[in-house]
């Protein structure tokens, strides 16, 4: 009987401790969120004092904690993609990281840095989605049809520098990610730091108003043949879009189309 009472007491005690811990967690998280919002507001105020206006929608549109991601080149995933599109095909490796697959309906060449070329044979009607559709249920990559070609998105943000479009004749080419697993890298600056960095960039470029921002990822091909996605912000000045690296706050070059 005493044991039973002791257990009841223990349960009540643990319940009280858990409630206390739970309330503590909530207040800490709330305090962090409030502090973060205040820092963002302060950053906007600082820029205003320096003569740079930040539109109200900008802080709301700023994402939290973006990270860079690296995809190690996966030649087996490329092979599987080729088989999905062409069916049975013959593989060729001329060197330099080039893999060519020849089938009855066309030929695909995979190059380092995610570069891909497809040549459709006359009369063939290949569904490129079978080649390009990201594999794996957990994939954060999505495909979009755009301007007669295909664009790539990561976590819902456009990936600049990635895309496959039609060339001359029955050729398609572009840059794409075929590997399924990525590795995360460095995290972006805090939202307040991003706003201050954006202000610095605008000032350097001679602009005084930040009308809007768009979050994107920039695709860069590494020398190893792997692909890295860097989070970036497109700053809308009204007359021009500036690109800012979200990891460093420095100006970034937009990848060539």
């Amino acid at each position: 009987m005493e044991w039973s009472k002791a257990k009841s007491l223990l349960i009540l005690l643990m319940l009280a401790v858990n409630i206390y811990l739970g309330v503590n967690i909530y207040t800490q998280l709330r305090a962090e969120a409030v502090q973060e919002e205040e820092m963002v507001r302060d950053a906007c105020t600082i820029l205003k004092q320096q003569g740079i206006t930040v539109a109200e929608k900008v802080p709301e549109a700023l994402p939290f904690g973006l990270q860079s991601h690296t995809w190690v080149r996966d030649t087996e995933a490329e092979r599987q993609a080729a088989l999905r599109l062409l069916g049975e095909c013959h593989e060729d490796q001329p060197g330099g990281g080039i893999y060519t697959y020849n089938g009855t309906e066309g030929a695909i060449t995979f190059r380092s840095g995610g570069y891909v070329e497809l040549l459709e044979n006359d009369g063939a009607d290949l569904d490129l989605k079978r080649l390009l559709l990201p594999q794996g249920e957990e994939s954060r990559l999505t495909l979009m049809q755009q301007d007669g070609g295909f664009a790539l998105c990561f976590d819902g943000y456009a990936v600049l520098g990635a895309g496959v479009g039609k060339g001359e004749g029955e050729t398609w080419s572009g840059t794409w990610i075929f590997a399924s697993a990525s590795q995360t890298g460095d995290e972006s600056l805090s939202r307040a730091q991003l706003i201050l960095s954006a202000g610095r960039l605008l000032e350097k470029s001679g602009y005084t108003e930040l009308k809007g921002i768009t979050c994107v990822y920039l695709l860069t091909s590494l020398q190893s043949g792997d692909i890295r996605l860097l989070p970036a912000l497109l700053l809308d000045t009204g007359s021009e879009q500036l690109c800012m690296n979200a990891l460093t706050g420095e100006a970034a070059l937009l990848p060539q189309k």
């Binding site: 039973s4 257990k7 349960i11 643990m14 319940l15 858990n18 811990l21 967690i25 800490q28 962090e32």
Partner: peptide, 29 residues
């Protein structure tokens, strides 16, 4: 039956307490 329920509750509350302690610690550091 009641005792078994109490034992189960103690175990669950204990696990929850440990988890929340860790979360508190990580937020504090």
């Amino acid at each position: 039956m009641r005792e078994k329920l109490k034992n189960l509750l103690i175990v669950l509350l204990g696990i929850l307490m440990v988890v929340m302690l860790v979360i508190n610690l990580s937020l504090g550091l």
